[in-house]
Design a binder for these strands. Structure first.
Lengths: 226, 226
DNA sequence: AGGACGCTTCGGTCTGCACCGAACTATCCT
DNA sequence: AGGATAGTTCGGTGCAGACCGAAGCGTCCT
């Protein structure tokens, strides 16, 4: 165990991995840049991370694109970040990622947490440590938004599951209902994916929609603790 | 992030933390023993871990009992262990813990995985990556065992959730149904808790019951890769 | 009070490894 | 072919931090 943790424990490697949790694949040079070290040293680090099964890469011409090797690695890093975030005020490499991102198939980041909060505050949702339930008022409310709660409930997967957010240190919604909400946000063009990242951009239409529907006010990116 | 990972990344500290994932509280001297270092060095390590919010302790006379500080820490360690286990054949400090243990309120380890497997193999359960469902045949089967599936389904929490097992690297059952199965196993005295650990002991009655009900044969502890 | 024991603090040693410069290989472009 | 760029390998340097011995503090026991 400590071998793995020691690999993540180095400052330079930690910065590289943080840059990769977005899910994007980066070249060795880009990683050297984020870690603020020379290409030679970067190469050493990347070699170790690949050997350990933390990273994989695919070669495209003279470029090597490195990415996290598995969901388990991603989960591990989020676990470490959660503990790390509970100490100091979190500082993010990528404020966009902290603001709104995709976590598997549902919304995470400030946006994900804000939606969950809004639903709970209005009595539309009850969230426990291990699961949650949409209330009757929530069912009619979500129907207005265009989400078929009953349909989600029938699906062969956890209906509603809280998912701990490493950036916010609070829960957002996963499970069938989380996916349904995310899907609806895409349909309405409230959010759209950014390039190859897991980060999401909130469209101008989205700003209005989210305010009108969930009472979520725009959080200026500048206000994110950088 | 890397500061936290670096703390776990040291061999000695890693061994101490591994000893503590059982949930048991240990004294500084006991931790010195498992880490194979002198009490002085142990004290330094423990100081750092406490400062970082990874451990807490409570003083009882001249003893200091150290334990993991939070569920987030426990989750982080299991995440690291999962990645570490995917590399080499896993070696366990504590084979009892690998065999059967409590994970929050449900069964984990070989036993937890074996029960989930048995249910799936007999078509009593369908498990997806994000949730699961008990079939009709499963509902009658579990009723025979004394588990009220419909009742579990009505509870305000995820009904059935797969939970990745760091020792087995496979899924066991969490959620309401996982908790119900664990509870029933305790009621029937098939398993009992070991001291202050999260490890469980399978009773002689349990051996028979588990074989008859789920077709789970006794896995000799000796067979665990030590 | 005095000794045993658990734990911590201090000072000093030594080793592991992150880091870079220099030199090398591979791919792309013109 | 020749130059530019991405990445790697090798050898050497320097520092952080893990480790221990010695000494100090607090608690328990008799």
């Amino acid at each position: 165990m400590s071998e793995i943790a020691a690999l993540v424990g180095d400052r330079a490697r930690g910065e590289m991995l943080s840059a990769l949790v977005s899910g994007r694949a980066l070249t060795a040079k880009e990683l050297a840049y984020v870690a603020k070290i020379t290409p030679q040293t970067t190469s050493e680090h990347l070699g170790k991370l690949v050997d350990a099964g933390i990273l994989t890469f695919n070669t495209r011409g003279r470029f090597r694109y490195f990415r996290l090797a598995s969901a388990a690695v991603s989960q591990m890093l989020e676990g470490i970040m959660t503990v790390a975030a509970s100490r100091r005020v979190p500082t993010f490499r990528d404020p966009t990622l902290a603001r709104a991102r995709i976590c598997y198939d549902h919304l995470a980041g400030e946006l994900g947490v804000a939606i969950a909060d809004s639903l709970i505050r209005h009595g539309h949702l009850i969230l426990g440590p291990d699961g949650g339930e949409v209330t009757e008022s929530g069912e009619t409310f979500l129907a207005d938004v265009g989400i078929d709660v009953a349909g989600s409930r029938r699906r062969r997967r956890a209906f509603c599951r809280p998912c701990l957010d490493w950036s916010e240190r609070r829960y957002h919604l996963a499970g069938a209902i989380g996916a349904a909400i995310a899907e609806r946000c895409f349909e309405m063009r409230w959010v759209k994916r950014i390039e190859e990242s897991r980060a999401l951009q909130i469209t101008p239409v989205g700003e209005k929609g989210l305010l009108a529907t969930f009472g979520i006010k725009r959080v200026p990116v500048a206000a994110c603790k950088q």
